[in-house]
Simulated assay, not measured.
Amino acid sequence: MVKVSEAVPAVGVLLAELLAACAGGRLAPLVRVFHGAADVGAALVDAAVGKPDHVLFVGSVAVGRKVAVAAAAGGVGCTLELGGKDAAIVCADADVPSAVMAVAAGAFYHAGQCCVGVERVFVDAAVYDEFVAAMVKHVKENVSYGYTPAPVGGGTTDEGDAGDTRAAEPDATYGVATVAKQLTVIQEHVDAAVAAGATVLTGGKADGAFYQPTVLTFPAPTSTPALDVETFGPLLPIVRVASADAAVAAANATAYGLSAYIFTADTAAGGRLARRMATGGVVINDVFLHGLHSAVPFGGCRASGVGRTGGKEGLLGWTTTQTVVTAAAGVADDWAMRRSYEAKLAALRALYGRATA
């Protein structure tokens, strides 16, 4: 059973169409797509109503916690993929032009409405000025908002084959905010950042249903919603740090723990930094790759959720482990012996080594 967000019901329609077309339609009867608001989702999670075997929720931290409580009340397993405040770290030896392109893609993809989007960048002071100048130039020249043209062609040809459904060249990098209230959230984060000492270098305000691509700079790490709370918009805060160690400390100073990105010429050192990140996934010298490959586990920790999708871990998360132990027949006499202290101590020593009284 799949319940899609009421903010994007067309996703559910497309999902149903794809299932009908996949495998000759054999998958369609196995999946039911539901539409509706929170009451529909609550009914599906309710063990007395929806009777789920396992619940997977993708969404906000606040709603995810409600889902977890409802699942626990019914003794149902739960996988949560919640919000993120994903940080990118740009080390002193990073390839700055490459890092700029990757970070910009991570920050402005889908108008920043992506759980693994880059929401903070901590840049080593040695390359900070170069990175900021290159990012501002890149955003002004290459990042824009607007509507994407409709697909070219479509339908079928006279022979019954699918026609040309390739989209025309997009005239914008990203589109609208999915829900209007998000524009208010983004603006509040920008205004609070400026009050906390940030400088707006590009954008900084809404334009109708769009929010401008916005680059903020901070002279040092600080506490403000733009650095602490998920923004979910085309906002890129860039923070100067003294070292990679300082960047790790600042990146970990949040309740979230979904993803992180590290840019460095020394991939071995990048791997060591990655293992210090309090996140479920880390990508070195790129963005998003851990969420694109179905063979690797994906998920977060702390407020960003529990459990994994993808990979062996993701498949096992939907199963229940059962342990079966078989003893030889006719063990009644053995149970009588187990009542003695000496027999219990001997068993402990056999199981755990040198047990002492």
Rank of each mutant, 00 (worst) to 15 (best):
V55R: 02
K51T: 15
G77S: 15
G41I: 06
S60C: 01
V40M: 01
D39E: 14
G41F: 10
D53N: 15
L15A: 12
A72L: 03
V58E: 11
L44A: 05
T79A: 02
F34T: 07
V45A: 12
A42G: 09
C78F: 05
A72C: 10
G36D: 09
V76A: 02
A62C: 04
V67Y: 06
L14D: 12
G77C: 00
D39F: 07
V69N: 08
E17C: 05
A20Q: 15
E17I: 01
S60A: 09
V61I: 11
V11N: 07
G36V: 03
A38Y: 09
A68S: 13
P29F: 02
E17Y: 11
V31N: 08
G75C: 01
L44S: 04
A48E: 08
V49D: 13
G77W: 00
D53H: 15
C22T: 15
R65G: 03
L14C: 08
C22V: 09
G41K: 01
G12C: 06
H54Q: 12
K66L: 13
A73G: 14
L27I: 15
E17T: 11
V13I: 10
G25K: 14
L30H: 14
L18H: 14
V67T: 02
R32F: 00
L44P: 05
A47C: 05
L27V: 14
V67C: 09
R32Q: 12
G74L: 01
A42K: 15
E81S: 03
L56E: 00
D53W: 13
L30M: 10
T79W: 00
S60L: 02
G77A: 15
G74S: 01
L44D: 05
H35N: 09
A16R: 13
A73L: 10
A73T: 10
G59H: 08
V67S: 06
V40W: 03
G77E: 08
A68R: 05
V63Y: 04
V55E: 05
V67Q: 05
G59F: 05
E81D: 07
C78P: 00
L80E: 02
A47S: 10
V11L: 14
A73P: 00
P52H: 07
